[in-house]
Amino acid sequence: MFYPNSPQTSPQLTQIPYGQQYAMMQRQIQQPYHPFATTEPQARLYPYHYQGPIQQEQGGFITQQSTAASPQYVQMRVTPVDQSIMSGYPNQTANGSSSSSFNYNIHPQQQQQQQQQQQQLRHHAMPVGSVPLQDDRYRKQLIVNYLAPDVTSTDLHELFSRFGELDGARIIYDKQTNMSKGYGFVYFCHAEDAKEAVERMSGYEFHGKWLKVGYSTNPLNIVPSNSSPYVHAGSRGAAG
């Protein structure tokens, strides 16, 4: 039997160049792979992502010199942007860049009308829970959420009447099932009393439920100042 490094198959040491006398086997001759043993700084910083320098080929596509990437890492192929796409944008300079302001050559009167329309939209648009300043009635009506099913309009009136005089209180019921929808409205005579009720009743436990109280901004629920107070009856038909 002959071994790869046996004296019968191995040459004389004098015939082997210096430095390879003890590297006779194939696994010894093959050098191990060192990912950080390279002179390129990109490979030292990113050993798993770097795959060699990027070269520009004919046709405008950018390719990489090395083989496919590892399945664990996804390499994105980048193509140059066609400058003709950006030619339609206004205020574009000769080098292809555009300024931040756009001039669509709008007539001054049209621009003024658009600004007025935007101001009107901001004036009428009102986020949930906010209180408008032009109508004091919005500051007097509250919406009470997360009410228990057994709470009546009379219970709601008695709960909030300790903060001040009320114009009314009612629970909203479903017309088909005649069941409470879980929320109601309270109408105060003074805005200061309503503000105190919002601050003190939010998070209050009532009939096993934690109440959420806020201003009601729905104009359909506003009680006119010259109208008669609501009837605080315990029956659902009268309260709904």
Rank of each mutant, 00 (worst) to 15 (best):
F2D: 04
F2P: 02
F2Y: 12
P7W: 13
S10D: 11
P11W: 15
L13R: 05
Q15M: 14
P17I: 13
Y18N: 11
G19A: 10
G19F: 14
Q20T: 12
Y22A: 11
Y22D: 06
A23N: 12
M24W: 12
M25V: 06
Q28G: 10
Q30E: 09
Q30N: 07
P35G: 11
T38W: 09
T38R: 05
R44H: 14
L45E: 13
Y48A: 09
H49W: 15
H49A: 10
Y50T: 12
I62L: 13
T63D: 04
Q65C: 12
T67L: 11
A68R: 12
A69D: 11
A69R: 08
S70E: 04
P71Q: 14
Q72T: 08
Y73W: 11
V74M: 05
V74G: 04
V74F: 13
R77Q: 14
R77E: 02
R77L: 15
R77A: 09
V78A: 10
T79I: 15
V81G: 11
Q83C: 13
I85G: 09
S87M: 09
G88P: 09
G88F: 14
Y89F: 14
N91S: 07
N91M: 13
N91L: 13
Q92V: 12
G96W: 11
S97P: 11
S97A: 07
S100L: 15
S101Q: 13
S101F: 15
N103K: 09
Y104C: 06
P108I: 12
Q109E: 10
Q111E: 07
Q111S: 05
Q113F: 14
Q113E: 08
Q118I: 13
Q118S: 07
Q120H: 11
R122F: 12
H124D: 11
H124K: 02
M126A: 05
M126P: 09
M126V: 10
V128R: 08
G129P: 06
S130C: 05
P132E: 06
Q134P: 11
Q134G: 05
D135V: 03
D135M: 14
Y138N: 02
L142N: 02
I143N: 01
V144F: 05
Y146E: 00
L147A: 03
L147S: 01
A148P: 02
P149W: 04
T152H: 03
L159V: 04
L159P: 10
F160E: 01
S161C: 02
S161Y: 15
S161N: 08
R162I: 13
F163D: 02
G164N: 02
E165K: 07
L166E: 01
G168M: 13
G168H: 02
A169H: 01
D174I: 01
K175R: 14
N178S: 08
S180L: 03
Y183R: 00
Y183P: 04
Y183G: 01
F185Q: 00
Y187A: 00
Y187L: 00
Y187W: 01
Y187I: 01
F188A: 01
C189P: 01
C189E: 01
H190Y: 10
A191E: 08
A194K: 00
A194D: 01
E196L: 06
E196G: 08
E196R: 10
A197L: 01
V198C: 06
R200E: 06
R200N: 03
S202N: 08
F206V: 02
K209V: 00
K209F: 01
K209W: 00
K209D: 00
K209G: 00
L211G: 00
V213K: 00
V213T: 02
G214P: 01
G214F: 01
S216H: 00
N221L: 14
I222K: 04
V223R: 09
P224S: 12
P224R: 12
N226G: 08
S228Y: 15
V231C: 04
H232D: 06
H232T: 06
A233V: 12
A238C: 13
A239F: 09
